[in-house]
Write a protein that binds this DNA or RNA. Sequence first.
RNA 1: CGGGAAGUGGCGCAGUCUGGUAGCGCACCUGCCUUGGGAGCAGGGGGUCGCAGGUUCAAAUCCUGUCUUCCCGACCA
Length: 578
Amino acid sequence: MRFSKFYCPTLKEDPAEAEVISHKLLIRAGLIRKLSSGIYSFLPLGFKCLSKVIKIVREEMDRAGALEVMLPVVQPAELWQESGRWDFYGKELLRFKDRNNRDFCIGPTHEEVITDLIRHEVKSYKQLPLNLYQIHTKFRDEMRPRFGLMRCREFIMKDAYSFDRDNEGAEKSYMQMYDVYHRIFKRIGLKYRAVEADTGQIGGSFSHEFMVLADTGEDTIVVCESCEYASNLEKAEVVSSYKLDTTQSEKCANLQEVYTPQKHTVAEVSEFLGVDKTKIVKTLLYVADGKYVAFVIPGDRDLNEAKARSSLKINDLRMANFEEVKEITGCDVGYAGPVSLNVDAIYVDKLLLGKKDLICGANKTDYHFRHLDIERDVSVTDYIDLVNVLEQDPCPRCGARLKFLKGIEVGHVFKLGEKYSRAMNAKFIDSDGKEKYFVMGCYGIGVTRIISAAIEQNYDENGIIFPPSIAPFEVAILSLDIKNQEVMKLSEDFYNYLTDKGIDVLWDDRDERPGFKFKDIDLMGIPIQVVIGKKGLDEGIVEFKNRKTKEVVKIPISEFEEKILEFRENVWKEWGLF
RNA sequence: CGGGAAGUGGCGCAGUCUGGUAGCGCACCUGCCUUGGGAGCAGGGGGUCGCAGGUUCAAAUCCUGUCUUCCCGACCA
């Protein structure tokens, strides 16, 4: 592509609306433009990059034997009512009516549609296993779209759905996709981790997320310093043998009221009474599917609502408001405690199992209790894992220390089991002649989000540094003196040579000053720059520059053809690509 | 949905407090000049200041309402 014929509006200044680096650079380098909150147009450069990502994803999915399909964006409400998600999915599901007043939605995901398709088409175990995928537009009406392509409302997703005759087959399909995802993210050149994850709204029995490591990531991931354990914070198990720093006495003294005026928070009580936060218990009051419940957790920990939701099978969970807290405790907010509490259930974190001599709210304004013995004083409904792990906690696998990293979720694999096939009555005839439900899995990749994530991980003060595998152009030829015929002739020869090799080249043949061209090409993140100028020609050389390492080599013109391929190979190797 | 900020040529901003009919930089067009890290000079085009209503002789500026965007939180494959 000749730059003089290309359309790529670059900006010198950061757009006011962008906060994170990838968002700024995507706009500045001319890849995307915003149409509305969370809705973006892809300009030619952005579309080229997107196409490269899609190509890799498609090649790897095809290699694994998955079959590409294309499912409708507009979906009838009936399917969603059948699966139960029409009411459950919430406002993220964009709904509308057609001219006949029928309810529809724009697909945020396609489990319903694919299950409906398969239940009508696949009748025999002989047709299984089957894995169908598509790469196209999803719409989720996010409460708060943000960070450019990171959290859009409209975005491109690769979603795949596997159908197996039994659990064993389903796990095989799952592991196959797990392996495919590793291949995909390696080929793209991302630094990432696969972590154990919560299943959320999609549901199902277990899942892994693929997280690109970046400080701006929205998710916290927990990794072990010693073994391979890695998990989303939402899912990470707290080892229940973890010892609270509590002095355990054989006998615990009786509960004793203590005056704690105006001390509502754990920090305040801890300071006022001069005791460690770990000796204080927090009692958090929630409304879970219409019932009052209390969660009792160590004072130094945070409640993990995802864990509470999934282990108690709660659909709707929210904190009790001030009025409700007063109704439950009979006192002001800040003095709730688990003793004689007027709730439907009291769930105590496993870490508190058997703990004595703790401090808790007394359900009386300005008072706390000393000498709380959980077993003696609390009517515990159940002990469950309710809190987030902390850094330095022991690894649930090997006991070594855990540490936190920030990650951007770019892929997610779920083992769904029979969740959707049962809900939608999708069955086949197995070899024993009996009807059975399909055992399903689903597998998503945020294709557009990958572009953001790649930039968050690879940039410098001059702009984007694209991995060569997804760079919109792999090589840029910068002709510095376009009025010099020798420069232009050589540039054209190089351009034709590289293009004939199937390499995507941007030839900057614009009538601009050299500095202007350098700035543009750097900003756009093109991995290899070939600089051809009068100055170099006088010495009989051209220059190759590696965008990532800034390394520049001078190559005699006669050796260009062999050297460029060698240089290119080295660039790919540096990225760990092949 | 709660809290905060902001809407002025394509982009980035000033002007608003203290009303008097819109300005700067970049970009764009023309010409000259320049050419190894976003050059310079000269000339030029483009906006009735998010929208609606109100106050006033007069509103970008004051008042009311509304829409949009961004940030924090809640939420979230």
